[in-house]
Computed example of a mutant assay.
Amino acid sequence: MSPEHGARRSQVVMVEPALTQLNKLTANETHRLDRAIVAISVNPELGTEVPGTLLRDYADEIDAVRVIYYVTALRTITIVAYIEA
């Protein structure tokens, strides 16, 4: 990776029920969630593994958000299954 380029981000896709919850968030909550999604897209290993599944659970106590997601095998797509903000 050349010095002028940052880490490669994965594409983020939200599925139900994440989309339903997203529609209920305020502008401030959406802004906080956006920061978490960007962090996860750059480093999908941020969350902790959910035992017995492919899911990862990322909780940011400072921004008060939680994202449950999984990453495709080539790490090019992050699929968000659940959000809290």
Rank of each mutant, 00 (worst) to 15 (best):
L74Q: 14
I40K: 04
S10D: 00
V50R: 14
G47V: 01
A36S: 15
P17V: 08
A81R: 12
E49Y: 11
R9A: 07
A81G: 05
A73P: 06
A18C: 02
D60W: 07
G52Q: 07
G47E: 04
E4I: 11
T30L: 15
M1A: 10
A81Q: 15
A64V: 00
R56M: 13
A73D: 14
E49S: 10
I37G: 00
V15N: 04
H31A: 13
A36W: 02
T30G: 12
A27P: 03
P44D: 06
D57K: 04
I40Q: 01
I79G: 07
A36Y: 03
S41Q: 07
P44C: 08
E84D: 10
L22H: 12
A81K: 14
D34P: 02
T20Q: 13
V80G: 10
P3S: 11
V38G: 03
R56Y: 14
V42H: 13
M1I: 08
Q11M: 09
A85T: 14
Y70S: 14
A18Y: 00
G6A: 08
H31N: 12
T48C: 13
V65L: 03
V13S: 09
G47L: 09
Q21K: 12
L46V: 04
G6M: 01
L54T: 07
E16N: 09
I68P: 02
E4C: 10
R35P: 03
P51I: 04
M1N: 10
R8S: 07
E16Q: 08
Y69T: 02
V42G: 04
T20V: 05
P17Q: 06
Y82I: 05
T48M: 15
D34V: 06
M1W: 03
L74F: 10
G52T: 04
T76K: 15
G52C: 05
P17G: 11
E4A: 10
E45H: 13
I77D: 14
A85V: 14
T26L: 03
A81L: 08
A7C: 10
D63H: 07
G47R: 03
D34L: 10
N28V: 14
R9G: 05
I79M: 13
Y58T: 00
T76N: 15
L33P: 01
V80F: 06
R66P: 03
Q11I: 07
A64G: 05
A59N: 07
V50P: 01
M14Y: 06
L55R: 07
I37Q: 01
A36F: 06
S41Y: 03
Q11W: 02
A7V: 08
Q21D: 09
A59V: 15
K24P: 08
A73C: 09
R9T: 04
A81Y: 08
V38W: 11
